[in-house]
């Protein structure tokens, strides 16, 4: 994994239409993004297809990267996550039902991770630990499976408004914990 600054510089060059930089960026981050897509989609063929779309989007959106204030890796992961969630939601609309397999909590770090990312993540996971298990699970499902309030309410067998209240309170608690 390249450093944050290197990835940022590659994105900046991609924004100018530099195809070599695009290839370097692909070499730097495709394994990470493919891992994210596999985790969310739990389907190798679809993850490969999604990865194509993700890099087509990266090519077209690189120019707007600076405007959003995200770190480069977060910007890239968010594009991948959103592509995967769109696909999951389309799959569910087509009636395949919920994808259960993809959400096993797995905190094992990837081999290429930097120390910085590890500490950020352990801080986040520690704050998730402070939530009630079901509420932490709801937040994770929203992010990693794209589940809506209605789907979460059904899964946890509570009224929609209760689900909304739970989740919003969980966000408040998470932010308080993360700001400590």
């Amino acid at each position: 994994m390249e450093s944050k600054d290197e990835i940022e510089a590659q994105i900046a060059r991609v924004a100018t239409g530099d195809r070599d930089a695009f290839q370097r960026l692909y070499s730097s981050v495709s394994a990470k993004l493919f891992g994210v897509l596999l985790r969310v989609l739990n389907d190798r063929a679809e993850a490969e297809d999604a990865l194509q779309n993700v890099f087509v989007k990266i090519w077209h959106k690189a120019g707007s990267y600076r405007a959003n204030g995200l770190s480069p890796m977060t910007w890239l992961i968010t594009i991948a996550r959103n592509e995967a969630i769109d696909r999951l939601r389309r799959r569910r609309r087509q009636g395949e039902g919920m994808d259960e397999a993809a959400l096993v909590a797995d905190a094992s770090p990837g081999p290429e991770e930097t120390v910085m990312q590890k500490s950020d993540r352990s801080r986040l996971l520690a704050c998730f630990e402070e939530l009630e298990a079901a509420r932490a699970e709801a937040v994770r499902r929203a992010y990693l499976q794209g589940e809506t309030y209605a789907e979460l309410a059904e899964r946890f067998d509570v009224p929609l408004n209760t689900m909304r209240t739970w989740l919003r309170r969980s966000l408040l608690k998470l932010r308080e914990c993360l700001s400590r």
Binding site: V56, N68, S71, T74, R81, Q117, Y143, L144, L171
Partner: peptide
């Protein structure tokens, strides 16, 4: 941005995996 950074760490639980070699070629074609 703060939430996007935090939640992206959730996605990073997934171990990296090298995609098949034809994917880059297909992206370049597109």
């Amino acid at each position: 941005a703060a939430w996007a950074e935090d939640f992206a760490r959730l996605a990073e639980e997934a171990p990296p995996e090298t995609p098949p070699t034809n994917v880059l070629a297909e992206i370049r074609t597109r």
